[in-house]
Design a protein around this nucleic acid. Sequence first.
DNA 1: TATGAATGAGAATTCATTCAT
DNA 2: GATGAATGAATTCTCATTCAT
Lengths: 213, 213, 213, 213
Amino acid sequence: MPAGERRQQILDASAEVFSRKGYRMAAVSDVVDVAGIGRGTFYLYFDSKREIFLELIEEFFRGYARLLEENHRHLEEAFDVQGKVLRTWRDNMLRVLTYHKDNPHLTDIVYREAMGRDEDFSARVSELSELAREKLVAEFQMMYDHGMMRECDVEVVTSIVIGSVIYLVMNHLQQGNDADVETLADMMVEYHIRALIPEVGNVDRALRSALGK
Amino acid sequence: MPAGERRQQILDASAEVFSRKGYRMAAVSDVVDVAGIGRGTFYLYFDSKREIFLELIEEFFRGYARLLEENHRHLEEAFDVQGKVLRTWRDNMLRVLTYHKDNPHLTDIVYREAMGRDEDFSARVSELSELAREKLVAEFQMMYDHGMMRECDVEVVTSIVIGSVIYLVMNHLQQGNDADVETLADMMVEYHIRALIPEVGNVDRALRSALGK
Amino acid sequence: MPAGERRQQILDASAEVFSRKGYRMAAVSDVVDVAGIGRGTFYLYFDSKREIFLELIEEFFRGYARLLEENHRHLEEAFDVQGKVLRTWRDNMLRVLTYHKDNPHLTDIVYREAMGRDEDFSARVSELSELAREKLVAEFQMMYDHGMMRECDVEVVTSIVIGSVIYLVMNHLQQGNDADVETLADMMVEYHIRALIPEVGNVDRALRSALGK
Amino acid sequence: MPAGERRQQILDASAEVFSRKGYRMAAVSDVVDVAGIGRGTFYLYFDSKREIFLELIEEFFRGYARLLEENHRHLEEAFDVQGKVLRTWRDNMLRVLTYHKDNPHLTDIVYREAMGRDEDFSARVSELSELAREKLVAEFQMMYDHGMMRECDVEVVTSIVIGSVIYLVMNHLQQGNDADVETLADMMVEYHIRALIPEVGNVDRALRSALGK
DNA sequence: TATGAATGAGAATTCATTCAT
DNA sequence: GATGAATGAATTCTCATTCAT
């Protein structure tokens, strides 16, 4: 089997195992059993249990960062087109939810396991979280600067939105709770638009624009 | 030393240790060192490391549940008084944030550590989280039933609010992030009132009523 | 059992095991079996297998260094007394051989195991060997300076004597080969006096003086 | 590449690696890396790590035994020629030192590593050492029988000489300690002649004869 | 009640050897 | 012949828990 595939196979197995048992409870033994390989083979591809766990986290944030940058670009472009911003923001939210839904194990690992204070990797996790957060702050700042948000503390607002996304994902998109991701995105967007719109009188128009109805 | 005090002393020590090092990294050894007792003494008061951890979690949720019930009662009573509901809701939010701020170790343990999938206690944590969630759902349902919320999915809204609270607490009230809890409560309440108010035209009045300005 | 005794008990057991099986082949498991203690108990007293091995080596060289200093002092004092030097040198040699005979396990470990290139401790072993060697060089230099040795390269002579001592110890005093240590000392002393005496004509007198016959 | 050459190439690589890292620390991996061959190729030429190590030791002792036999023959022949014995003995010593100097890796392996108690090969090493020793004992016995040595314990004397040779080699001819091998041989021979000569009055003549001065 | 030395099950990791290509 | 990916037995070390004092 080609080295790349074998590596991915082990990554996949470990994602499943870490998600199911948690980092500490998961033994390398469990991972190799699921991957259907020998104990030593694991160490041909990864230096340690810690390393593969970090790799999964990096993988999640790599994809997430890419997505957020894409979103950022879409939003920037949307400002040039009349009435496009909110619709774009809604599409961005949909992509964020979809990303989590499509990567249930990684999502689980990042939001449940990696948060834990494990001196082995909590520093790196904080760093990556912070990077993601900064991208979101930038996005909100941009909307704020374009007068699309009422007077508010952008940092706090970002926390509110991120928290609501994470909690929504964990409660409605994980573990068989497969709510319809489009509906959830619409609800989220409506919620935050109502909360943030500068002129409440424009709410209906804004919602129509964002949700395409 | 009286048994009760000794027990609490150990609980306090373990809260600090678990919060600092995490459940898995924290050794019983660390706890007894901080508590200034012998290794065996620990086991006179608690059956196991798992048990004391669960006890801390129960302690957090016991206090939280009491608070939420109190909040619920206040809200119920508020419905009888003209223009009191939103102000009460704001007070409730303040109490929720204050509770977390006043119990930083327990907050840390519950939201960072206890989330982890550990067969030792994740079942119980889910159960307790669910109980807390149900109380919040009930509160929102009550507001909804009184026509204080627009047409929406109460479950989803509850998730959004809970997520925003947790993330705000973890990012703005933990670890030396000493934001002013009243200001945060006001921001939160304004945010969610704007998002949820049935008639957007009444927003200013609602905010004035809620925030007492 | 007092901590000091327990520690010594483990040291003794490990000396026996390391001497019998060698550092690499000896498992911590073997040591605790011989000591009659639990696996974890070992780690209450020593940080690692490497550490206890180094401790044994340090123990050997600590005793050896003390002995060599004592010898040095005796020799210095002997220069003040007519006809005492060679006799003292013979007593010193006897003490050296006796030290090795009395510490068979440590001797075995130092000369057979510790010589091996193990990056874990070979540096420290070299350092200690060098210290012992320097003391012996000093002793020979002192005799040389007092005109008790013919013109020669003191470094080379020291190597010759050390080598002969080690090989004699390993072949005649180890593993049940318990030759009489006094006889061996006499043979050694006679050998080296003959090899080193400045005036060959004085040999008989020198030997009589050294061997007390 | 012809099988014989390939085999020797691996032997050379392993000699270097074992000498540098020691038997236990050296991985088969290191050997194949140095030899520039594949992992499996190693096992086409040698059954195991143990086997190649033993092979190196056998190689050392094969050469050494050959040399000692040659020395023995020279000595036997020397007895027929007036005043030739000591000169021959000196030449023999020179060849012994030269052999070690010319085979630094094997020397290192035999005297540092192979001494270790490793059930894998220590029995064989003892056997080979004993064979070499016996040849040297025979040589000394022959000299003793021809009245060229004073009354003494030949076994002990052999130990002394072997020990001095080994220690001299390890301290003055290994690892960049590039002493002149002829000078060392002369010093050694002078030392042992002085120590062993039956009539001390003949020492000067003996030394002149041995060292050719 | 309080103690802390002792325990041993369990986990991560290494590396000599095999074998399908 | 040559290769190197795969293997798994074996080893070191940790730490929650017990129990004799």
